[in-house]
Write a protein that binds this DNA or RNA. Structure first.
Length: 477
RNA sequence: GGCGCCGUGGCCAAGUGGUAAGGCGGAGGACUGCAAAUCCUCUAUCCCCGGUUCGAAUCCGGGCGGCGCCUCCA
């Protein structure tokens, strides 16, 4: 089945056709590492991960690059305040970011380029733009990109160039939307830049690269002139991505990205999350509040990436229950007794149908809500089939296992839930002992003692389940 | 003020012309010593009004309501 994606550039659902068959080159705008990433950032990063996982799931040979912005107004400001260089200052936040990614089960990408490692290529890139008449050094010493030199400027956002003031200059990174003007490619080094070791020599004097330039150069350097997909948050459409297109296409003469996908910003407890409102929250804080990473993942995947998503504690609790249902199902499948005398089931059909529905949902512009529905429908039907049969065929059990595992390679819910529930051997031994004690108590019908033990375990997030084959236990969030 | 999006059960959320997915929660039942897990049953006519159509949550018009971007942000 073909994958269709909503392309911001065409404003339509387009068939995903990479430049080279079977290969997918993806570039995603990563975080500016001057602070902790918050839950809103992770809606985008988790979407990147979903794209990454699904393209691989479909068999593409994926080359995925996500930058970590380490040179811009904010990192320099932070470094100066901290009395360190941008390199030192951003390293800690880069590490914290990658740690959060790992917690949430975000699969590592192929490269995490940082601007400071690409100063040489950036200088070359600017040189090419000046030679071809797309950039100029101004009286203030900075090098600017000439918007008027690129006729397609404004195409991505769909803005009317005539209505824009062209010719004025913007030297700061903190961009101004709806006010397209020539933007800086190379900035004259300020005193702060020097203090933060964020200044380099160039043919145009001491300075540093402009933010928009960084992404163009890193993507082209790492992935070639034309990308198959470029991902980012909705706020980046203009001017950041518009500028990337202008720079890259002017420099290479080739189409920059075949598809542009943008994630909508989320709401937090019904409100926009922003620093001015003081209501942004980090992954770490949520974990401290006791929410599991799989619950966070589930809630963020619960709504389609282009639609509104209101991230709430209440929703997180609902997600926790949903994830537990999956884990319970996975446990059941793993421990399921199989045999030849089994009753015939239609588990093969249930499995195939579920996987088809799942793939169809994902192919439809990554419709995760629909994909989750396919997963949970599968869980219900398989559970019912298990209940109806005394024993199932091993091949049927395996079909279910494979489909569950297959879906989770994309969704990563079980994977993350398992990782956060790992138990050490000592604990397992202790629990087994307690279960034996309880079994003895039950055998002599001393239910008060039995319930006491169950409560003791429950206090440690260990839940018991008495079944036909004895008592099983599990760790819950 | 400009541009755009949205309004589906108690909550979250799919569904863009053919008679309402899924999750959470709730009620009842089966199972259990009691639970837990699981299963079964029940729990919405899609903000309002008008229009188009054989037929609309889905299209058009008008209201009302919420939100986003235009300012830092993914």
């Amino acid at each position: 089945m073909p994958l269709k994606v909503y392309n911001t550039a065409t404003r339509s659902l387009d068939l995903f056709v990479p430049l080279e068959e079977g290969r997918a080159k993806v570039y995603a705008c990563g975080p500016t590492i001057y602070d902790h990433a918050h839950i809103g950032n992770f809606r985008a990063f988790l979407f990147y991960d979903l794209v990454h996982r699904y393209l691989e799931w479909k068999g593409y040979e994926v080359r995925f690059v996500m930058n970590l912005t380490d040179v811009d107004d904010k990192t320099i400001k932070g470094a100066v305040a901290a009395g360190s260089s941008v390199g030192e200052f951003t390293r800690q936040f880069g590490d914290l970011f990658l740690a959060d990614c790992a917690t949430l089960g975000i699969v590592p990408v192929d490269r995490y380029p940082r601007a400071t490692d690409y100063i040489g290529p950036m200088i070359d890139f600017i040189g090419r733009l000046i030679e071809s008449g797309h950039a100029y050094q101004a009286d203030d010493g900075a090098v600017y990109y000439s918007i008027a030199s690129f006729e397609r400027y404004g195409k991505l956002k769909g803005i009317d160039l005539d209505s824009l003031k062209v010719g004025a200059r913007v030297s700061h990174d903190e961009y101004e939307k709806e006010d397209a003007r020539d933007f800086a490619l190379w900035k004259v080094a300020s005193e702060e830049d020097e203090v933060a070791s964020a200044a380099w020599d160039s043919p145009w004097g001491r300075g540093r690269p402009g933010w928009h330039l960084e992404c163009s150069v890193m993507s082209v350097t790492e992935l070639g002139d034309t990308l198959d997909m470029h991902l980012g948050g909705e706020d980046l459409v203009f001017p950041h991505h518009e500028n990337e297109i202008a720079q890259s296409e002017a420099a290479t003469g080739k189409p920059f990205s075949r598809n542009w996908l943008h994630v909508k910003h989320l709401q937090l407890e019904g409100r926009k999350m922003s620093k001015s409102l003081g209501n942004f929250i980090t992954v770490r804080e949520l974990l401290e509040e006791g929410f599991g990473p799989a619950s966070i993942r589930h809630q963020l995947l619960g709504a389609h990436y282009r639609s509104e998503l209101n991230f709430t504690r209440e929703g997180l609790n609902a997600s926790k229950s949903a994830v537990q249902r999956l884990v319970d199902f996975d446990d059941r499948v793993r421990a399921l007794p199989t045999g030849q005398a089994a009753t015939a089931t239609d588990l093969q059909t249930i499995s195939e149908t579920a996987l088809d529905a799942f793939a169809a949902a994902m192919d439809d512009d990554f419709n995760t809500s629909d994909a989750l529905a396919a997963l949970f429908m599968f869980v219900s039907r398989a559970n019912a089939a298990f209940d109806a049969a005394d024993v199932v065929l091993e091949s049927d059990r395996n079909a279910v296992r494979e489909v569950l595992g297959s879906m989770d390679r994309v969704l990563g819910l079980l994977e993350v839930a398992r990782a956060s529930r790992a138990v050490d051997d000592d604990l397992a031994l202790w629990v087994d002992l307690k279960i034996q004690e309880r079994a003895d108590a039950r055998a002599r019908r001393d239910f008060a003692a039995a319930d006491g033990i169950r409560d003791e375990l429950s206090a440690r997030n260990i839940v018991l389940e008495d079944g036909a084959g004895g008592t099983r236990w599990k760790v819950v969030d």
